[in-house]
């Protein structure tokens, strides 16, 4: 099977699992989970040196989900990749379950920081990348951010320090879906000119279509420019793959899913299921 098709099939399975798990739990964050699917698929199935049999592998690449509310999407990818069992995924947001709405590294092998409060993950990534420099290790540190969360000032403190310490082992990825909980980013608190902001902070910035798996893989495969942290600005669509969720901030959280379960399932159903 061609590599493209292999990865495309994983994104389809992930979207199906996201909606299935959401319907099952009645809660979750479908919008930002669906927009991150190609990014997470590329990282976990193509780019990162990781092993579900040995999640703490010393020379593994590190992954931090700074947009911790994307836990629903990340959990499905971890399940598909073998880091989380079906039973664990099925416990998403359930009483006594192991998965909450936000990422907990102690319950989710394959993840390198607990997150949820926005704007924290990039600093932790800087710390991990600095340690790799001190230890002369060659792995990379990947930090996935939501665009809305970069309204937090701490993101820009971290961005400044990553460039200052020439962290060319650090890769920031922004899921630029342009929608946050209460509306469009440009209406809530404008981020543009966004590419220029990261460039001005002395990052090596690449802008791509975050739903084109080839573009995502290609951008992630390229080495960082020497002495610079890299930022991959992924233009995405919030709620991608479920037409009535796309671009609608109402689907940042998924409280209304019960009412639309049938329609949502119809859009992501797999031919094999």
């Amino acid at each position: 099977m061609r590599e493209f098709e292999r990865l495309e099939n994983i994104t389809k399975e992930a979207r199906y699992l996201i909606i299935k798990t959401l319907i099952d739990s009645g809660m979750g964050h479908p919008g930002g989970s669906l927009s991150s699917v190609e990014i997470l698929t590329a990282l976990f199935f193509k780019i990162m040196n990781i092993n579900p049999e040995d999640p703490g592998l010393n020379d593994r690449d590190r992954f931090i989900m700074s947009k911790g509310h994307g836990c629903l999407g990340l959990s499905t990818i971890l399940n598909l990749r073998g880091f989380l069992s079906d039973k664990e995924l099925a416990s998403f947001r359930k009483n006594g379950g192991s998965l909450s709405a936000h990422v907990d590294m102690k319950k989710m092998p394959g993840v390198d920081m607990s997150t949820g409060s926005l704007g924290h993950g990039l600093s932790v990534g800087v710390g991990r990348a600095l340690s790799a420099k001190i230890n002369k290790q060659n792995h990379k540190v990947y930090v996935l951010m939501g665009d809305g969360e970069t309204q937090e000032g701490s993101i820009w403190e971290a961005a400044m320090s990553a460039a200052h310490y020439n962290l060319d082992n650090l890769v920031g990825i922004v899921d630029r879906n342009k929608v946050q909980q209460c509306g469009n980013t440009e209406e809530i608190m404008s981020l543009e000119p966004y590419f220029d902001k990261w460039t001005a902070f002395n990052w090596d910035v690449k802008e791509i279509d975050g739903h084109d798996i080839n573009q995502v893989v290609s951008a992630l495969s390229q080495d960082n420019q020497e002495s610079k942290p890299k930022l991959i600005l992924c233009n995405t669509v919030k709620g991608k793959g479920v037409s009535f969720m796309e671009g609608d901030n109402k689907w940042h959280g998924g409280g209304a899913i019960k009412e639309f379960a049938k329609e949502a399932m119809q859009e992501v159903k797999l031919e094999s299921k």
Binding site: D112, S123, V126, R128, E157, S161, H164
Partner: peptide, 28 residues
């Protein structure tokens, strides 16, 4: 000097970086 990091006037970032370093086995 190789184990001392000036983070500038950015305490939130400093604490976050410390978390990352500790996760890698350092004692920040």
């Amino acid at each position: 000097p190789d184990r001392h990091f000036q983070i500038g006037i950015a305490e939130q970032n400093m604490v976050g970086i410390a978390a990352g370093l500790a996760l890698e086995g350092k004692i920040p």
